[in-house]
Simulated assay, not measured.
Amino acid sequence: MDDDLIPLSALQHYLYCPRQCALIHLEQQWAENRQTAEGRLLHDKADTPAVELRHGVRTVTAMPLSSADLGIGGVADVVEFHVEPTGERPYPVEYKRGRPKAHRADEVQLCAQGLCLEAMFGKTVAEGALFYGQPRRRERVVFDETLRSLTRETIDGTRAMFISRLTPLASYEARRCDSCSLLDLCQPRLLGKAGHVDAWLKRQLQNED
């Protein structure tokens, strides 16, 4: 993949937590926990390039995707090609561990795959699916204008951070941080407090003036 393209996975990381995205993609830091290990095992089959034809659907695993106009690229877990009167219709499927999330980070990553497929095949990709490991079923995701706009905004935000090469400051949120594999590397409790101390010191100095 072109080094100038923003990785599709970075979009999911950025929307979930910009600091996590920077630690992984700018500082090249990584740590594994139970959740990431489960996710890696779930992706094992999808990470092997292959083409399979079954019941009139051509399924491609580990398919490279890119959009030069959007400046994004990566590898799709699975792309199904459904036969229609006008030709084959691409349908991206992304594998995720756990359950459907309250945030839309997974949906944005999938929608970005759809935008890449549109650029590559010149056809509208109206939807895709997220396959979660615990319920072991697909969740249909419609690429409506709201999701497409959020995806483009996330691409712009991620690109701006990549260009700046600046890692955002830590900010601790229990629901988001405690399950993150980078918790020990990020140190949001400690560094978040340090930011509050700096702000307190600045206020004290201003009050003395």
Rank of each mutant, 00 (worst) to 15 (best):
D2I: 03
D2N: 13
D2G: 09
D4N: 12
I6K: 05
I6G: 03
L8R: 13
H13G: 04
Y16S: 14
C17V: 15
R19S: 06
C21H: 08
L23T: 06
L26V: 08
L26I: 13
Q29I: 09
E32N: 15
N33R: 11
R34F: 02
A37W: 15
G39M: 08
L41E: 14
L42T: 02
H43C: 09
H43N: 05
D44P: 07
A46C: 13
D47H: 13
E52V: 12
E52M: 12
L53I: 14
L53D: 14
R54F: 15
R54C: 11
G56V: 03
R58C: 11
T61P: 05
P64F: 14
L65R: 01
S67P: 09
S67R: 12
G71W: 06
G71D: 05
G73H: 06
D77Q: 08
V78Q: 06
V79C: 01
H82R: 05
V83Y: 04
V83I: 04
E84W: 15
P85Q: 10
E88A: 12
E88C: 08
E88N: 06
P90G: 00
V93I: 14
E94K: 14
E94L: 06
Y95C: 04
G98T: 08
R99I: 07
R104P: 01
E107D: 09
Q113M: 14
Q113D: 00
L115Q: 07
L115E: 04
C116K: 08
C116H: 09
A119H: 05
A119T: 05
F121R: 02
F121D: 03
K123F: 04
E127P: 02
G128T: 11
A129M: 10
F131N: 00
F131Q: 01
G133P: 11
G133M: 12
Q134E: 07
Q134C: 02
Q134G: 01
E139T: 07
E139L: 10
V142M: 01
F143W: 10
F143C: 02
F143Y: 06
D144L: 08
E145V: 07
L147V: 00
L147D: 00
R148V: 02
L150M: 15
L150H: 10
T151G: 01
E153H: 14
E153S: 13
T154V: 13
G157R: 12
T158W: 01
A160R: 15
F162K: 07
I163G: 03
L166Q: 15
L169F: 14
A170R: 00
A170N: 08
Y172W: 06
E173S: 00
R175F: 04
C177H: 09
C180D: 00
L183S: 06
D184G: 09
L185M: 05
L185K: 04
Q187G: 07
Q187Y: 03
P188D: 02
R189A: 07
L190F: 12
G192D: 03
G192S: 09
K193Y: 15
A194C: 06
H196G: 09
H196I: 13
H196R: 14
V197L: 15
W200A: 15
L201C: 07
L201T: 12
L201E: 11
Q204H: 12
L205Q: 15
Q206D: 08
Q206M: 12
N207S: 15
N207A: 15
